[in-house]
Design a protein around this nucleic acid. Structure first.
Lengths: 221, 221
DNA sequence: TAGATTGTTAATCGATTAACAATC
DNA sequence: TAGATTGTTAATCGATTAACAATC
């Protein structure tokens, strides 16, 4: 069995560009399901997207399911396959460190909870934030993190602190036994190889947007 | 002059993967500058990154500057070149629509303001939010957006509303004469070709993180 | 059957990496 | 000079697109 053979559910092939597109598909598929559709073809799926159908077929192939010529894919089956692939059918609990502007937002961001990531508590060192409740989640002092992580068995940590503090917080999370870190700070974290560390590059997004804006401005001159 | 020839500042070559890395470089370069360094080589720059030096050189080449063998790049010149390329040396003013959890965060997110994007006001339709001040920015009713955009000459709109409302808001922004939209909602917006529209795919980030986590879990079994 | 759609195989495109000559 | 580093040219790698046969 080689890399291009069908995915059997055990050994999962991971292509990052594909994985990034999956939530977009999932969102549209769920809408179609609410509309009462039973089947979907790649051509109809990409109606609201600017992908090519063949790209979608390649992506769906990795989910390990197959469609029927003329009818397309079974909608329910497809949704289940994507959710299973993403692991969004079972919930990961997470703690969040850094209850500033961005952290407060993510604590209350509904799509995360709907997609398998449940933030159970926030942590900070700023005394004006500690003890408060943000979007229903309690904020504790960072010194309590280790004990709480160990007691609750939480496996995921989200870092939304200023960049100067990020590595320090990562070290605390790792020491507490966390398995994965979703890092929203600017810095590349140093973590042991058995801890999953994923950087969310918001500044990179702004950079792309800025350059696109400039391009357009030049074109209009 | 072809695509691979040196960028002369007028006609700017845009490679998205490069653009996404620029803020990371910029951040480290500014730290080095604060430390009193005058020059930087690609080898030292990537000390805290996991890129290859040749990748950095290729990226910097697009900035239209050149370094000196043995000494590297002039730090000040390099920082200025990147900031100029990104347009982060002059400020874009923006309005934000959707003062929910995520919107409130972005309104107060310092790195945006430090990097050329100044949010001047927020808009919403929820009466409990209107009239409030979030991180120093006033929240107005959406119906006031058009008049305010036209009066202030703001050119950029940020969308942080639930996905059902996103297209409606985009239409309002376009009608008000905005040039660019930074879209944090799930949906692909339909906008005229002369409006720059950039989608920030947070769910895609979560998807990649989720899959990485699962991979690690499988590996540990 | 006819035709839309899937899935396979090959071609293209673009980004990263490697090798190495040029240079201070 | 010797050696580190830049910048060029070529090779590799991976993702997207194209062409088309298989299928219901």
């Amino acid at each position: 069995m080689n890399e291009t053979s069908q995915n059997n559910g055990n050994m999962k092939i991971m292509r990052l560009p594909t994985v990034k597109r999956l939530p977009t598909y999932l969102h549209i598929l769920k809408q179609l399901e609410r509309d009462g559709q039973k089947f979907v073809s790649t051509t109809t799926l990409i109606n609201e997207l600017d992908f090519k159908p063949i790209l979608v077929r390649k992506d769906l192939f990795l989910m390990g399911i197959s469609g029927k010529p003329r009818t397309g894919y079974d909608l329910k089956e497809l949704i289940a396959a994507i959710e299973n692939y993403l692991g969004w059918n079972n919930i990961d609990e997470a703690v969040l460190v850094g209850a500033g502007a961005l952290g407060s937002a993510l604590i209350g961001h509904k799509p995360f909870e709907e997609n398998g990531l449940k933030i159970i508590a926030g942590f900070d060192v700023d005394s004006s934030r500690i003890g408060r409740t943000i979007h229903g989640k309690k904020i504790y002092h960072l010194s309590e993190l280790s004990e709480q992580v160990q007691r609750t068995g939480v496996r995921v940590g989200i870092i939304t602190v200023p960049w100067r503090e990020a590595q320090k917080v990562a070290d605390i999370l790792v020491a507490a036994g966390i398995w994965g870190i979703w890092n929203f700070s600017m810095v590349k974290l140093k973590t042991p190889p058995d801890v999953v560390c994923h950087n969310e590059n918001l500044a990179g997004g702004l950079a792309v947007f800025s350059v696109k804006l400039q391009k357009m401005r030049e074109a209009l001159l």
